[in-house]
Design a protein around this nucleic acid. Structure first.
Length: 482
DNA sequence: TGAAATGTTGGGGCG
DNA sequence: ACGCCCCAACATTTC
């Protein structure tokens, strides 16, 4: 067997949210160093702190790992699957294959930064080489700062600064042509590693998504067909013209720099409004990571004091449940929440509408919404989810002011003018036409089934109550300042 | 990457 | 011709 004669040292490639073989810096590091890479994934619940991946993410993870396992085998290699403490497992595999090094791509979530630092120290204490690489972002969070040396808190100057550096980015890395195989290493089989959901509540996910590196590139190719129209169409949930790359990015099946370089190669598209608009959205992802890195407490508490003293409402669990399950009686909100439940995804415009309803009409603290999205989204990403919710609630950096309260009826009329999106997810409203479908309570006799005949809260009254509450909080804040 | 209230402007109908 | 009103279409302000 070749491995017996091969004198090259072995490096473990500790995979997490970088489930790809192309443009994988940790893997490339091993190859550059003339080392034999062994891919390892460890299911370590403790390493994520209290933001352990939700059920939808795990459904995705299961399929993404299966794809990676198959891709690794196709190159002659393997993917070692382990469960439990990361360090213990790494050390055990190091012993089994007599590895000299462990390489991985960096994570930026607070719990992972802590546990990764401990792992790195412990590996080095044992005389092993341990290196973390930059693989998930265009820019490391510490590489961009204001003239005063502080982290940016406003997107526009952040992205302007990033724009100066975009042209200097190194191109993506290529994949190995082959991978070595190791005979004496124990691991779980892919089928036994993560159980398929029972009952198969995730079946609707895979109509719209195909996890894995190949699925990511197929999705990207599909998106290229309509990226020209992206800027004009991206707010339309009734059109399937967004990239839908977010779960692939969240699991690291594709990287932002692969996307960026691939777009640059498309000469006719590279400077189009649609392309630039999409790249700007990648910028928001970068900005979210930047904020998460510099303000790690923001996953659980307000990033700014803008809403200090605001009287958030006590949660009525029945109403919260109505919101989660798409039974608020407000079509645009319910359609979004049902899309989320069925597909593990929700159109971005509708996420904003649903978040506005929760944090303003219901006046619940954003954390309740962030938790639900965290559990149900296949693209659950701590940086994006946190900043998205803080942005909606008015508590974040560069956030929408709290008084920007969406009217889900006018949002519906504007962005789903035919009612096609709402009709797709709320069959109880099939009898409505475009004119009235976003306010079915004006024709309650047309509503079918047990869909609410009226919204669970009055949109006008709760809007005014939110503004009044904001005014109160404003007084508290100004008293505290004096 | 709001909405609603309020203010302004200008065209047209009408006495 | 003129003032007056109505109202749509915008613009500005406020939360």
């Amino acid at each position: 067997m070749t491995e017996d004669r091969d004198a090259r040292p072995t490096a473990l490639i500790w995979l997490r949210r970088d489930l790809r073989l192309v443009d994988n810096p940790a893997l490339s590091r091993a190859l550059e160093r003339g080392m034999r890479p062994l891919l390892v994934y460890i299911d370590d619940a403790a390493g994520s702190g209290h933001w352990q991946e939700g059920a939808a993410s795990r459904a995705w993870l299961r399929r993404s790992l299966a794809a990676l396992d198959s891709d690794a085998r196709a190159l002659g290699g393997q993917l070692v699957l382990r469960r439990g403490d990361s360090l213990e497992n790494l050390l055990d595999i190091v012993d089994a294959v007599d590895a000299a090094a462990v390489f991985w791509n960096r994570r930026y979530e607070p719990a992972h930064r802590q546990s990764d630092a401990r792992v790195k120290q412990a590996l080095r204490d044992r005389g092993l080489e341990a290196e973390s690489c930059a693989g998930a972002l265009l820019f490391e969070p510490w590489s961009l700062q204001t003239q005063a040396g502080a982290p940016y808190r406003v997107f526009t100057p952040y992205w302007r600064k990033a724009g100066e550096l975009l042209d200097e980015l190194a191109p993506p890395l290529s994949a190995p042509e082959t991978l070595p195989r190791f005979a004496d290493v124990q691991g779980h089989s892919i089928d036994a590693f993560l159980e398929a959901p029972k009952p198969a509540w995730d079946h609707g996910f895979w109509d719209v998504h195909q996890p894995g590196e190949r699925g990511a590139w197929q999705r990207f190719a599909g998106f290229l067909e309509c990226i020209d129209a992206y800027q004009d169409q991206r707010d339309r949930p009734d059109r399937a013209q967004t990239s839908r790359l977010s779960p692939h990015l969240a699991f690291g099946e594709i990287t932002p720099r692969q996307i960026l370089f691939a777009l640059r190669r498309q000469e006719t598209l590279a400077r189009s409004k649609g392309t630039l608009g999409f790249i700007r959205e990648l910028g928001w992802r970068e900005f979210s990571y930047h904020l998460l890195f510099h303000f790690p407490d923001s996953t659980d508490a307000d990033l700014t004091g803008a809403m200090f003293g605001f009287p958030w409402s006590d949660v009525d669990t029945d109403l919260l449940e109505d919101w989660k399950r798409g039974r608020t009686g407000v079509p645009m909100v319910d359609a979004g929440m049902r899309e989320l439940w069925a597909t593990g995804s929700m159109h971005n415009r509708v996420r904003m509408v649903a978040a506005s309803f929760l944090t303003k009409n219901l006046r619940y603290y954003w954390h309740h919404g962030a938790r639900w999205f965290w559990d149900t989204l296949v693209d659950a990403d701590l940086a994006n989810n946190t900043q998205g919710w803080q942005w909606s609630a008015g508590t974040g950096a560069d956030a929408a002011p709290y008084f920007r309260i969406f009217n889900p009826v006018s949002q519906g009329k504007r962005f789903d003018p035919d009612g096609a999106y709402v009709r797709r997810w709320i069959p109880e409203l099939t009898r409505f036409d475009a004119k009235t479908i976003h306010e079915p309570w004006t024709r309650p006799q047309l509503i079918e089934g047990d869909y609410p005949r009226a919204p669970i809260v009055d949109l006008g009254k709760t809007r005014q109550a939110a503004l009044d509450a904001w005014q109160q909080g404003k007084e508290v804040r100004s008293m505290l300042r004096d």
